[in-house]
Each structure stands twice: as C-alpha cells, then as structure tokens.
C-alpha cells in the first residue's frame, strides 16, 4: 500500500505532521498549484499501515487519516507491486 495526500483537498494545516509517530510527514516549503503548502512525505513506506494493512486485513494506526480535517490522506494499492527495503528505527 502507498500513502498519498490528495493535493486537491489538503489545506496545509500540518496536523498530520504533529501526530505521526514515525515522523513521516514534514512541513512542506513549496506552494502547489492551489497556493497551498502541503506536507512532504519522508520514506512513507515506513508507515505501519503501508506495510501491514494487507497482511492484517484492516486499518492499522491511521491516526493521520483520522485527524486530517480535510479527508486528504488515503492509501492506494501499488500496481505493479513494488517491493521496498524498509528500515524502521525505534
């Protein structure tokens, strides 16, 4: 699974930056075409949900999606499947 921010909805509030335990979201620096500074993703493949949602068959963590006031965060299937080397630091 792949984490994506829908830039047509994101208003750049940075609440996802605040809540992600892995620090996957970082404050952005560049305006997008809607004049909004969306967060940037740092190695999103580390996200629990990206790695394990298919295995467990349910949403894991998902706090960023839940707090996102603009319904901008979701996960999409990766096609064709792209294997990743994932390093998770604790």
């Amino acid at each position: 699974m792949k984490l994506v921010i829908d830039e047509s909805r994101c208003k750049g509030c940075n609440l996802c930056v605040l809540v992600c335990p892995y620090g996957i979201f970082g404050e952005g620096t560049e305006l997008n075409s809607r004049g909004i500074v969306s967060p940037v993703l740092d190695r999103p493949e580390r996200c629990t949900n990206c790695r394990l949602q298919a295995l467990y068959g349910r949403m894991l963590c998902g706090v960023c999606q839940m707090i996102c006031p603009d319904q901008a965060i979701s996960w999409t299937d990766e096609k064709p499947f792209e294997p990743h080397r994932v390093e998770v630091e604790f």
Partner: peptide
C-alpha cells in the same frame, strides 16, 4: 461522504473536519 461537496468550507486546520471523520 458527499465527495462532490469536498473540500468543505472549513478553514485550514478547523477541528470540525476531524469530528466528522470520527
């Protein structure tokens, strides 16, 4: 969700969107 109505009118970071999610 009525996706055709999104994005909603709330300001950046308004908590109302989160409450709707929950």
């Amino acid at each position: 969700f009525r996706e055709d109505r999104l994005p909603h009118i709330y300001c950046t970071g308004c908590g109302n969107g989160t409450v709707i999610n929950c």
